[in-house]
């Protein structure tokens, strides 16, 4: 075995492929700290949040939900909204399907008991638009800054099922006390002018924001139409003083991607070299 390893080592050093590997291995520690240090910092500032919009047909409630992982399933997002914002819900099909939200929908395990009326599942594009979800809520992934919408109505596809009202992520999870971004000042004054139930002083929250993101941007149900949903969401929307701008994930390709690209190129090129040399050897011999 020891002999094996030493011969492996000498073989390794002889090959151009392995040389590429060695270079990559040397590069790894350089990029590593940059990557690992960046992500906890972002997490400490805000933590991932997603918006959940529930349209019962009679009224719209929206929740800003703090996620307990970087991505959660659509089902878990509802559970989190239930825990954080007092949303009542009921699942069917062994916890895979959504039967009942905010007191609307069938009670049992069969979520299509009231068919053609059922809960349609939508994903928001972040700027007000909605697309019909191609996957079930149990397999859909919801990450930071995502919007999930549920509408009680009929229609078998996104073409005929009613859509949630146009909602942007900032309507529900409002970045407050961010002097750098333009919409914030007007919202902040609005919040001061119209304090709704459960609204605490935004100034006090702003001061405590960096340490405790969970309480700063907790779930806020707003029991009125979408026109007022943004306003009602505003006062309790936690201070995002430390995290202005869009979520960090959408900023662009990170340094990890470059390392991955180099690794992939080394592997693909190495394999190609191997095949070429073995072919040449065969044609000579």
């Amino acid at each position: 075995m020891g002999d094996d390893v030493s011969t492996v080592a000498t073989t390794v050093l002889r090959r151009p492929v392995a040389a590429a590997f060695a270079v990559l291995a040397a590069l790894m520690p350089v990029t590593w700290p940059a990557v690992t240090e960046a992500s906890p910092a972002c997490a400490a500032e805000s933590g991932p949040h997603a918006a959940l919009v529930i349209d019962t047909g009679a009224g719209v409630r929206s929740f800003c939900v703090a996620l307990d992982a970087t991505t959660v399933s659509g089902i878990h997002l509802i559970e989190l909204a239930g825990a954080q914002g007092h949303l009542s819900y009921g699942f069917g099909s062994g916890g895979q399907a959504v039967c009942r939200l905010a007191g609307v929908g069938p009670q049992g395990d069969d979520c299509f008991a009231d068919y053609p009326q059922y809960w349609g599942y939508w994903h928001g594009d972040g700027h007000g638009g909605w697309t019909w979800s191609s996957s079930g809520a149990a397999s859909a992934r919801v990450g930071d800054g995502a919007l999930d919408g549920w509408v009680w109505g009929s229609g078998d596809s996104g073409a005929s099922h009613p859509k949630p009202p146009p909602t942007a992520i900032d309507d529900v999870c409002v970045p407050e006390a961010t002097p750098a971004t333009s919409p914030s000042p007007s919202r902040a004054t609005h919040a001061a002018a119209v304090p709704s139930a459960g609204a605490r002083s935004s100034a006090s929250k702003a001061s405590s924001s960096p340490s405790d993101p969970g309480t700063n941007r907790s779930a806020k149900p707003s029991n009125d139409g979408i026109g007022r949903a943004s306003a009602a969401g505003t006062p309790t929307a936690g201070a995002l003083a430390a995290a202005p701008g869009p979520p960090p994930a959408s900023a662009g390709p990170g340094p990890g991607l470059l390392v991955a690209l180099a690794l992939g190129a080394a592997l693909a090129g190495g394999g190609w070299l191997r095949i070429r040399t073995s072919r040449r050897r065969r044609s000579i011999g």
């Binding site: 790894m28 970087t70 995502a146 994930a249």
Partner: peptide, 21 residues
Amino acid sequence: AVLHPQTSPIVWPEADPLLLA
């Protein structure tokens, strides 16, 4: 680490150095 990058809205996938290793 993110194993399932979110697709709505679409974001750049992440590459964790430990998982790359």
